[in-house]
Design a protein around this nucleic acid. Structure first.
Lengths: 150, 150
DNA sequence: GATCAAATGAAAATAATTTTTATTTGTACC
DNA sequence: GGTACAAATAAAAATTATTTTCATTTGATC
């Protein structure tokens, strides 16, 4: 993700094109791992003169609301974020070892679930689907170099 | 869920059978809605002489780790909990309006996702799947009585 | 370039959650 | 039923993530 792509996204969302927003998008967009708000902040601080953590939170919230970035769910009760350029509806595989996020080609949500809900008169508005595991690189014989202990 | 069922669960988990643990299980087990740790605490305080919020958190953590209760994911960055007696692998439909949680009969996770991961040498350890929407009661013509504004 | 709403910084506040340590309580064993 | 000991809990304080507030700055539009 380069600045031009970031600009285009902000323009589409009718958000002002500011250096901070471009940096947050660039940071997440060039990172194959999911990051916390604090981690995004730490990385951006090195490149942008001055940016506050609340601004990072605000930008992340906007981008999540707009569907540009995705929340990653972890048991540690912190929020994590990931940006992927794949714009179609899809879900993610998340490596427990190295934090890498990979796209799953298709939405694996079957018909059964939706039918059950609809039969009882309700309707579905969204769903959360995240596959956790250990990626190929971390499972392999030489995993020492690429892994971190969570 | 009655006390006997709670006792059996704790015995199976090799946890001591204490009044607080039984109350937490009874509270969540007789509640068709998901609750926050604080909400569980508020309800239990009325029935148990003295219980601290940290104890509620500890018990909830134990029960989540043991797979007895499930976390419900919400955008408000708080943790919610739900206990269902259905012990098989399954997932939930969560009503955005009334907080009701309903079991989905089958796991709707298809083969596609797992194959993708396995092809690249990784393996899957767990998955998160939650369907959000509005339940039949809250969608119906007389929804006023049963709904709450989130 | 001027205008104005939107965006941001900085500091403080909030709220959820966790840690610590002393005390209490179940359980296993007698 | 009584005892010993590990496990569980209370209470208070600490920690940490996140949000709010308000004054200031900045980007978009004209």
């Amino acid at each position: 993700m380069d600045k031009e792509q970031g600009r285009a996204i902000l323009k589409r969302l009718k958000l002002k094109i500011t250096p901070k927003r471009l940096e947050v998008m660039s940071c997440l967009g060039n990172e194959p791992l999911y990051l916390s708000a604090d981690e995004v902040w730490q990385r951006i601080k090195l490149r942008v003169a001055s940016i506050g953590l609340p601004t990072v939170y605000r930008i992340l919230d906007e981008l999540v609301a707009a569907g540009v970035i995705t929340r990653i769910f972890q048991a540690d009760r912190k929020q994590y974020y990931f940006l992927c350029t794949n714009q179609g509806h899809h879900h993610h595989f998340v490596c427990e070892s190295c934090r890498r996020v990979e796209d799953l080609e298709q939405c694996v949500l079957g018909e059964g679930a939706l039918e059950t809900v609809q039969r009882s008169g309700g309707h579905v508005t969204s769903h959360i689907l995240q596959i956790n595991g250990v990626c190929g690189a971390c499972s392999g014989p030489h995993q020492e170099a690429s892994c971190r202990t969570a």
